[in-house]
Design a protein around this nucleic acid. Structure first.
Lengths: 341, 341
DNA sequence: TTGTAAGCGTTATCAC
DNA sequence: GTGATAACGCTTACAA
């Protein structure tokens, strides 16, 4: 059995409670005893038992992470390592550990979340995605359990703390950029319509199109999963139209990569015959050929702020609901052609 | 306060210990009382408290995951989501939760691991990478804490349970494939030499070269990080040689992608002027242009078996040390030219 | 400033 | 079969 607070107390000739206070660095303990106790801890190689502490404290110092179903292709998106890096950094700063959901299907994940919550395994939860009609959000609300979502909640936006980009504006700007370059036939290729981010970006695209007085065409709207195969199917459909688009707003870099390669195979040159504005600006955007013009949504910050906000909320449950918007910037590379020249 | 075992006991008119036995489905409890207790649990919406259970049990049902430093570019490699998926699947099956290391530097991570172990936060640990001179492995060995490493340990291979590919053989075969195609000038582009996988693959490459009676040249060996910038630098060096290679063995798909694009920018055609065999066969390999011939190392299985093996070990500490080798297969696509034709 | 003792929600060891 | 009761290792009133 490992060395406990009692062993330390014995060696240091104090009561267990005193040792506990030294650990918490309670100011009411004299420096002299603190020193003595610390020496004893050192001598015995004492390390506090987190589990015991959690039970006494009713707090685990653990944040639960809900990822999309690992069956889901979304899981492969480079978005996740990067949010994770943001979350991890913030969590580490505040001494929180991270626990991930497991499970392949949506229901398995919901069950996992219930275990986390009811089993008191975590102090709060971050949802790493936002989908329509999400059971998990509903459950967490019912339980009044602290959580924050990355992305915009589908419903009750005002009542749920979340960290998001202004995806509506970002997509509007991206589309306007293309329009400003003289493109009149601009299509939209989005990820799963189940994801709120897709909806927001589509709305922003639509707004820009209508504002420019360009007719909005349903055939120009394509939804596919956030993945490369998706991109390839999507592009074939689009190109077989009577009036194929000269430019694309693509909701994700991975998808753009797929599209780029499909176009390459078809002998269509980017940006000469087709312009693209992509989203997320992950590593792939830089490494693609030609390098993608992509809206940088600051993924790291999305994660970092989410963790920071959640921890505040956990520590002070009276914290008001918050909406945090992370700024975006368009990084111009080489996938947009100026039609006016 | 949440509903506890005592509340259930009161409602069901039994002792708390009986409720506990019902939860554990102890056969010595009569079906009648079981039913009564279960109804009471249902009625109150009871859920067991994992923390309390852990304390009483000395077991957390949590597996700790040690990722490479998130500062590290390795973190961005699509390898990780995929191992994670494997680990997650196995863990879920056996009802284990997953806790990740946080921390940006190597030392921060080591501290985190110490917290996991000493704080009794996890029952066992999986290392998701294997580097030379690893402090974490040494620490875990000293503590006699159950762990398994994904990849081959640098030292004491026989004493450490690990799940790996036969990277030596895989690299040898990949190189032989190129040689069989008539290539005599084959270079090796590997990731960080700190990683054992790089070393193994380099050794396999060397063996194939020597076996074929081709002189082994130091200038043909390049080490860079597992990332795209790396690939780009590497290729420039290689091409400026007096006798530039006609084929490359590249230790990672992400790196290959960078190389592919650099070659494209330089106007060098793949596979006509340069052949490539890559490793890992992640999504990127398929989506690259041209699609990469890549050695599939079955990343999912690497993770799945690691988790499964660890759980066995946790449940039965007397389990012997194991080495599990996951088979690889070369997936031929379009980056290798047959020079004999 | 420090010690005593109760409690956190379980499980496990005895009894009966 | 089931019930008391003592752990598990820590925190935190309340006393002193």
């Amino acid at each position: 059995m490992a060395v406990t607070i009692k062993d330390v107390a014995k060696i240091a000739n104090v009561a267990p409670s005193t040792v506990s206070r030294v650990i918490a660095n309670n100011p009411r303990i004299s420096e002299k005893t603190k020193k003595r106790v610390r020496e004893a801890m050192e001598e015995l190689g004492y390390h506090p038992n987190f589990i015991a502490r959690s039970l006494a404290n009713q707090s685990t110092q653990v944040i639960g992470l809900v990822m999309p179903a690992s069956a889901d292709k979304t899981f492969q998106n480079p978005f996740f390592p990067e949010v994770l890096r943001g979350i991890s950094t913030a969590a580490h700063e505040k001494q929180y550990a991270l626990q991930m959901s497991t499970g392949v299907t949506g229901n398995e994940i919901l069950e996992g979340v219930m275990q986390m919550v009811q089993g008191r395994r975590v102090d709060g939860i971050i949802l790493l995605y936002s989908a329509v009609e999400d059971k998990i959000i509903k459950y967490l609300q019912k339980e009044c359990f602290p959580f924050v979502v990355i992305g915009k909640p589908f419903e009750q936006v005002e009542e749920i703390t979340h960290v998001d980009n202004d995806n509506y504006r970002a997509a509007k700007e991206a589309t306007q950029h293309l329009i400003g370059l003289g493109h009149k036939r601009v299509a939209f290729v989005g990820g799963s319509i189940q994801l709120v981010v897709t909806i927001d970006r589509l709305l922003g695209y639509e707004k820009a199109i209508r504002d420019a007085g360009i007719p909005y065409k349903d055939e120009y709207i394509i939804h596919e999963e956030f993945l490369k195969e998706g991109g390839q199917e999507a592009i074939s459909e689009l190109l077989s139209l009577d009036e194929p688009p000269t430019a694309l707003v693509v909701s994700d870099d991975l998808m753009s990569l797929g599209i780029l390669n499909t176009l390459h195979d078809m002998g269509i040159s980017v940006p000469d015959q087709m312009s693209i504005v992509s989203f997320n600006n992950v590593l792939l955007a830089e490494v693609a050929r030609p390098p993608l013009t992509s809206v940088d949504i600051n993924i790291f910050q999305l994660g970092f702020q989410a963790a920071k906000t959640l921890i505040q909320k956990v520590k002070d449950p009276s914290e008001p609901t918050k909406r945090i918007i992370i700024p975006h910037t368009m990084v111009k590379r080489q996938t947009c052609k100026d039609m006016t020249k």
